[in-house]
Design a protein around this nucleic acid. Structure first.
Length: 504
RNA sequence: UCCUCGAUAGCUCAGCUGGUUAGAGCGAGUGACUGUUAAUCACUAGGUCCCUGGUUCGAGCCCAGGUCGGGGAGCCA
């Protein structure tokens, strides 16, 4: 019996097992908000209606105490979930003392140190449900499209691109690296099964401390024989649309819990703009407007509004602090104002960080040098202007991976494509058409200073029945972060591993 | 690796140009309250002011070096 099914048991006696998510009590009444992993439900112990021992046990409950409750299901529109339980029996399973996570603002470090408990809170619960939908939707999409799921090894002897970002391990006395992409293996598997996808963990030892980076993250890498870059873009677009529509179909309540603006997700049915690198650069530099917006001007406006908001917030904090100081205010009202002040101070810290970052981003966009790869801030500047994901293709070949196909129409470019999520999120997909020319590939491997013997097996794919093929890699956490509009990817995975974070 | 912000009670934060005994709210504990949805009231217990050194009659506050954390750059999904 689970809380999510209560509607089928109106006016019946049910038994629920779960944890105390919240509790309020007065003399003859105890209100327990029970959490059972499927939902929340208020349960009421009324001293007049139940045995004294049950009532006393109800009073003993604390935050996150585990209990079993039996009671009658009563419809009550005012309650979360629309139902309430009138308790008739209550069994304490384990009484928790001093649960660390309180119903108030906490700092990031504290919450991360208590990630094992933080996962129980409502917001995190909702995010994990959405992640689950996305994971399932990804498998569903590819399976329906006739893809075979195959897994690339996690231990690898050679680096795809450089070694500075690899975690080294000991493999029976030899160095081995944790995989940072299954890409090359994916190509081999596609030659055997035509269309395949991998879905597994990926490791990158980048000492990055930004909202977009994890050291361990989950990547989905499809690879398709007989696909060119345009087929690839068609697939990316269909794929992301299917996944987001699945979330909209299954997770409206969760999206509401985290206060996600659904209208932007609903735009997913619109076609994704496809820009060449050249076009995207013009937009970033503010030389071309898009959707009646100019990248530079709108960022300048953003900066102004951040500055204005800072003075607003400062004024409100001061006002509330002065209010509290006046003698005679009721204790509860002081507490209420103090909680508001806490929240405003957190907002103020974030705004001040933005006011330091935006000028840097502005100068980076203004001074963007044609031919460079996009940085994180460039992607932010660009994607703030859109309300659907965009695809940027035909990149200068020097800045992209060695295995990307040179554009036959202009050898300056490589047929890579990045998909950038809107609202400033940036890259969630990177991919492209693969180089099939054996000599060009050998040249690129030498150019990058990579050990040729490690790539012999890969070159075999060009020697024996080489065909045009393409694929891409999607970062699961980045997709979840955008769908949920989270400020940081660390909340999209149960136990994040990142620079400076290996526990819990 | 670089830039930038920070570290004070279990938590979130005040703490003035350096000045006696370091504060608030929340949380916790005790008692009072018959329906609450972070707003009832009273009382109680909570501190190595991150570490090391320096300046000073005097350092939570100033200086130097470190440690840890937030944000960003580079790199990337």
């Amino acid at each position: 019996m689970y809380i999510k099914d209560l509607s089928k048991f109106e006016n019946q006696l049910v038994t629920l097992k779960g944890w105390v998510a919240n509790k309020r009590e007065s003399k003859g009444l105890v209100f327990i908000v029970l959490r059972d992993g499927t939902g929340l439900c208020q349960c009421v112990a009324d001293a007049n209606n139940i045995d004294e021992s049950y009532f006393n046990d109800a009073r003993k409950t604390t935050l996150e105490t585990s209990i079993s409750i039996t009671g009658k299901v009563i419809k009550d529109e005012k309650q979360i979930g629309g139902y309430e339980i009138a308790i008739t029996e209550l069994e304490l399973i384990q009484v928790a003392t001093d649960y660390p996570i309180a119903k108030k603002e906490h700092g990031v470090e504290f919450l991360m140190d208590h990630r094992h408990l933080w996962l129980r809170s409502q917001r995190q619960w909702a995010i994990m449900r959405i992640r689950n939908t996305i994971t399932f939707a990804i498998h569903k999409f590819f399976q329906q499209e006739g893809f075979i799921q195959m897994d690339a090894p996690l231990f690898t002897g050679n680096a795809v691109e450089g070694t500075s970002t690899l975690f080294e391990t000991d493999f029976y006395g030899d160095p081995a690296y944790l995989s940072q992409s299954g890409q090359l293996y994916g190509e081999a598997m596609a030659m055997a099964h035509n269309k395949i996808y991998t879905f597994g963990p990926t490791f990158r030892a980048e000492k990055s401390k930004t909202r977009r980076h994890l050291s361990e993250f989950w990547m989905i890498e499809p690879e398709m024989a007989f696909h060119d870059i345009f087929d690839n873009m068609d697939l990316i677009e269909r794929f992301l649309r299917a996944v987001v529509l699945d979330v909209l179909a299954n997770n409206k309540p969760e999206l509401a819990m985290i206060e996600r603006d659904i209208s932007i997700l609903e735009n997913i049915t619109k076609p994704f703009p496809r820009l060449t690198y050249d076009e995207a650069v013009k937009i970033i530099k503010g030389e071309v407007d898009v959707n009646n917006k100019n990248a530079i001007v709108s960022l300048e406006e953003e900066l102004t509004s951040v500055v204005n908001r800072i003075s607003e917030v400062e004024a409100e904090i001061k006002e509330r602090e002065d209010k509290i100081k006046v003698p005679g205010m009721k204790k509860g009202e002081i507490g209420f104002n103090q909680a508001k002040i806490d929240k405003l101070k957190h907002e103020l810290n974030e705004l001040e960080e933005q006011s330091r970052n935006i000028p840097q981003w502005l100068s980076s966009a203004r001074n963007f040098e044609y031919g460079n790869d996009f940085g994180g801030s460039d992607e932010t500047v660009l994607t703030r202007l859109f309300d659907v994901p965009i695809m940027v293709y035909n990149w200068p070949h020097e800045v992209k991976a060695f295995y990307l196909k040179r554009d036959p129409e202009n050898s300056k470019f490589a047929r890579g494509v990045d998909t950038l999520a809107p609202e400033g999120y940036g890259e969630i997909v990177g991919g492209g058409e693969r180089e099939t020319d054996l000599d060009l590939l050998i040249g690129k491997i030498n150019e990058h200073g990579l050990p040729m013997e490690a790539f012999e097996w890969y070159l075999d794919l060009r020697r024996y029945g080489s065909v045009p093929h393409a694929g891409f890699g999607l970062g699961l956490e980045r997709l979840v972060a955008w769908v949920c509009k989270l400020p940081h990817v660390r909340e999209t995975i149960p136990f994040p591993r990142m620079y400076g974070r290996l526990k819990p």
